[in-house]
Design a protein around this nucleic acid. Structure first.
Length: 874
RNA sequence: GGUCGAUUAGCUCAGCGGUAGAGCACUCGCUUCACACGCGAGGGGUCGCAGGUUCGAAACCUGCAUCGACCACCA
């Protein structure tokens, strides 16, 4: 394959090589030649398919993107060189709240679904303080327009980073294909009864006015206070409870204590009267009530927290909600409050926010004497929507759910088994998945009350009074997808019947973004759209992703693939860590981190930035470290210079007269490699290849780099120095040819080893003397190198290095040049070592400029002793 | 409250049963014919703490501490 690629003409080795500007050159040539294009004729077993994370294309590329996307690219490039045909698409997650928010801020608009579409609409020139209300369709238009610009910028940066993505394989989570896929999967779930609708208490964000799923929750420590309140018993005694939410007193439906709590046992079955509102509520028993907490008896409200929901459900308590969708208390006095005093009390808090209601309630309770003592301040965890600013409320709403094992033990077991079946890198990340699945307390809530997203593809019949009949669902045929029930009419109806008695209405909700993101393999792989592609890539090989979205993206993807096809969506998951800034905080969460990826790439070079990223092992958080980038840059430059030097000995290579044909072939005649040191170096290199390969196979790319890099530096510092004189034909043509051929082979192998990490500099050097692209060349195999090494002993490499160090040390301590002549020196060591070293004595003598080298057998490691420097020469 | 991970030289990290490692930083040198974006040499660590297993522990086991993260029915 590689040999047929239209590659740049071998320009030969430049006199003064530089890495500056090579990104531009190679980005262009790779785009022209299509080296990274996926070959659709490859069968599944030769394909390596990657479920690339679609970045949220709202805003700018972050350093964290550079980091984690590089990791995936390392694997992709390695697999490609291993002969796999790599399916490496790119998606854009432009569907969801971040996009909505960005459009609001960027254009200074907000969506008002009640407004009509304005075809003449143009966004405000500058975003004003008051957001301009616009129609849903206009709003979505702006979303698509803005994300398209962002996506272009992302692609440019990713190309600059050197990602070997096939840029013909892209998708957007808001585009027609993604919406159709998402709706198709939903309809299949619906048909199999895996999706269902229910009216139930739902976690609700009052700012966004949407339901929120368990996976999107986070706890935040917030200040609060225990308020001790007295409930009135019929006999005039009082029962004291403690609550952090006195404003929900009007929603109280019972008091609950532990069944074994002797303090309250006499009260079970009796009623007490709530303070202020004077509502009679039962005292009931439930094992979840903790005798140690507060006064040991709790007020149950509909609904203050998730425990209330459990009590309400299991004890079959009445529903008395007072908090509305806007987070304010209902304006009308609830029907269950009937006394004059109760009505008056409610009227003073009606319509206020929860915060104000609490303040007023406390004052009322204090005045009535029902607040015992003063509230005692505490801090406690409060549930928030992860993107929200106000605590969640719990309101009863009609929502769509997808079965995910949250209330179904057999399904949960199956999904746990899928988690164990998946190969995790690193393995311990599996535990997060298992913990999450084990802790699920309900099915996956997939409906959202937002505007921009994939609509639920369902309509409802309206009865004679115009009320929806939720049991009378109308769904589209799969061939009609995608649909928007708010503008498309169901089959058999026309638009005039929308909203009228006997007609229909569209489901107003959209799906959770994860309901679409959980299908990225299906969207990218052509599920039910491109069967030929699908059967070549599915199930996929790799899901790379961040660890904080194991419970969301990874788990929901497993759910979807399991329900639809009964398989894991991929065999392996590579979990990347975070970038930490110098304060050890997740980068971007603290201030002063205005490091732009493009700036980094320009300043240090793409290879250098990739080098830094490659130092972060899978699953390990990594410090942002410009120092590592400088080292990477140094390595890239060293590769350039060392290659130029190594090739300079070979006249054919230096003039670009590279062998034609297959780049996988060894470019040398190994029968020329006769010198012990050359053979030893190659023997060592064969070991290095073996180690790097094993590391890569284990997804441990940082180890693979480390192994190659460590060899390369000693190759430069020791081997190149030791063979320099000989390669210059200092000791005959045969000895020179041995050095030259071994250098070429070593260079060829090392370029391949570095290619996944430093794609630009390796390709540059490759182009000087080798055909095709190094990125389509084969990953090196240890066996042929070992064969070329013949009887070479890898031990000699370190022994020679030890001697060289001894010689250098003597010169360094004498503060003379490394070229200074040594009159005499002695090498001491075991007989076997001395024998090996004596066979390469010519290299040692020439490199050390030693006139008289003596050999003395001795125990212990080899040392250089009795070094006598020659008198300085004028 | 439960769980996972981390704790090794000033910094960033590797090592994971057999005499403490790398790079950076630091010190001292070197116009050496690929590279001064270079080259060479050197100093620097009771491997978080306390027990245990072992002939031998940085590594294995048990606690503890600190940091980070994940999860949790948090009145």
């Amino acid at each position: 394959m590689s040999a047929t690629l239209p590659q740049s003409p071998a320009a030969g080795r430049p006199a003064k090589p530089t890495i500056d500007g090579i990104e531009t050159v190679w980005i262009q040539r790779w785009a022209e030649s299509g080296v990274y294009h996926f070959d659709r004729t490859a069968e599944r077993d030769r394909v390596y398919s990657i479920d690339t994370p679609p970045p949220t294309a709202s805003g700018s590329l972050h350093v964290g993107h550079v980091f984690s996307y590089t990791h995936t690219d390392l694997i992709a490039r390695y697999m490609r060189m291993r002969g796999r045909e790599v399916f490496y698409p790119m998606g854009w997650d432009d569907n969801g709240l971040p996009t909505e928010r960005r459009v609001q801020n960027h254009f200074g608009v907000r969506c008002d679904p009640s407004l009509p579409y304005d075809p003449e609409f143009t966004p405000p020139v500058s975003a004003g303080k008051n957001q301009l209300p616009i129609s849903r369709r206009n709003f979505i238009g702006l979303c698509e327009q803005l994300t398209l610009e962002d996506e272009k910028a992302f692609e440019e940066s990713f190309r600059r980073l050197g990602l070997s993505v096939d840029w013909r394989q892209t998708y957007r989570t808001i585009d027609d294909r993604a919406r159709a896929t998402s709706q198709r999967a939903f309809l299949r779930n619906l048909a199999r009864d895996e999706a269902y609708q229910a009216e139930a208490p739902t976690l609700w964000d009052v700012t966004f006015r949407t339901a929120v799923a368990q996976a999107e929750l986070e706890d935040r420590e917030r200040p609060g206070a225990y308020h001790r309140l007295g409930f009135h018993r019929p006999d005039g005694e009082r029962v004291f409870i403690e609550t952090t939410r006195p404003e929900l007193l009007a929603a109280c439906v019972a008091l609950v204590a532990h069944p074994d709590d002797e303090r309250y046992a006499p009260l079970f079955g009796t009623t007490v009267r709530t303070p202020l509102f004077e509502v009679d509520v039962p005292v009931v028993a439930h094992p979840l009530a903790d005798p140690e907490k507060g006064s040991g008896i709790a007020m149950v409200c509909t609904f203050g927290d998730l425990t209330d929901v459990i009590w309400w459900r299991e004890l079959q308590l009445p529903t008395r909600p007072i908090i509305g969708w806007d987070g304010r208390l209902h304006r009308e006095t609830p029907t269950w409050i009937s006394t004059a005093g109760g009505v008056a009390a409610y009227e003073s808090i009606a319509g206020t926010t929860a915060f104000t209601a609490q303040q007023r309630s406390v004052q009322l309770l204090r005045d009535s004497g029902d607040l015992i003592g003063e509230p005692s301040a505490i801090t406690h965890p409060v549930k928030f929507y992860e993107k929200g600013d106000k605590p969640l409320e719990i309101v009863t709403t009609r929502q769509w759910y997808l079965r995910n094992g949250g209330r179904d033990l057999p399904l949960r077991e199956q999904l746990l088994a899928r988690g164990r079946e998946l190969h995790w890198h690193p393995d311990h990340m599996k535990i997060r998945y298992l913990t999450w699945v084990e802790g699920l307390n309900g099915d996956w809530l997939v409906s959202r009350q937002r505007f921009f997203g994939v609509p639920i593809p369902v309509w409802y019949r309206l009865d004679e009074t115009g009320e929806p009949e939720y049991g009378q669902r109308l769904v589209p045929a799969e061939s009609e997808l995608p649909v928007d029930p708010s503008s498309d009419a169901p089959a058999g109806f026309d638009e005039s019947q929308r909203g009228v008695p006997g007609g229909f209405m569209g489901d107003p909700d959209i799906m959770d973004t994860w309901a679409t993101s959980s299908l990225t393999p299906q969207i990218a792989g052509g599920w039910e759209r491109d069967h030929d592609l699908w059967q070549r890539v599915w199930p996929m090989d790799l899901r790379p992703q961040a660890h904080e979205i194991i419970r969301t993206w990874l788990f929901s993807s497993v759910v979807r693939a399991h329900l639809e096809d009964g398989v894991l969506p991929w065999s392996d998951a590579a979990i990347s860590g975070w970038i930490l800034d110098p304060d050890r905080k997740k980068m971007g969460k603290s201030k002063g981190n205005a490091v732009t990826p493009l700036g980094l790439l320009e300043q240090h070079g793409s290879d250098a930035v990739r080098y830094w990223a490659a130092s972060g092992r899978p699953g390990t958080d990594t410090a942002f470290d410009v120092g590592q980038m400088k080292i990477g840059r140094r390595l890239a430059i060293k590769i350039l210079n060392a290659s130029s030097f190594a090739l300079s000995f070979d006249k054919a290579a230096s003039f670009g007269k590279a062998a034609d044909g297959d780049s996988s072939a060894t470019p040398v005649d190994s029968s020329d490699i006769t010198e012990p040191l050359d053979r030893a170096m190659l023997a060592r290199l064969a070991e290095i290849v073996r180690e790097a390969t094993a590391a890569f196979d284990d997804y441990n790319y940082s180890r693979a780099l480390e192994v190659a890099e460590s060899f390369f530096w000693s190759f430069c510092d020791d081997h190149l120095e030791l063979v320099k004189d000989r390669a210059y034909s200092g000791r005959g043509e045969a000895a020179a040819a041995s050095a030259q051929e071994a250098l070429k082979l070593a260079l060829d192998v090392q370029l391949r080893l570095f290619a996944p990490f430093l794609p630009f500099v390796t390709e540059e050097v490759w182009s000087w003397w080798r055909p095709g692209s190094v990125h389509r060349a084969n990953w090196p195999q240890p066996e042929p190198i070992r064969a070329a090494a013949a009887d070479g002993n890898p031990t000699l490499v370190s022994e020679a290095a030890a001697v060289l160090t001894g010689i250098r040390k003597a010169k360094s301590e004498a503060k003379v040049s490394m070229r200074a002549t040594i009159a005499s020196a002695e090498i001491r060591g075991p007989a076997a070592t001395l024998a090996r070293l004596q066979a390469m004595a010519g290299d040692l003598v020439a490199t050390g400029a030693i006139l008289d080298l003596r050999w003395v057998e001795a125990d212990g490691p080899v040392v250089v002793a009795d070094v006598v420097l020659a008198p300085e020469q004028g």
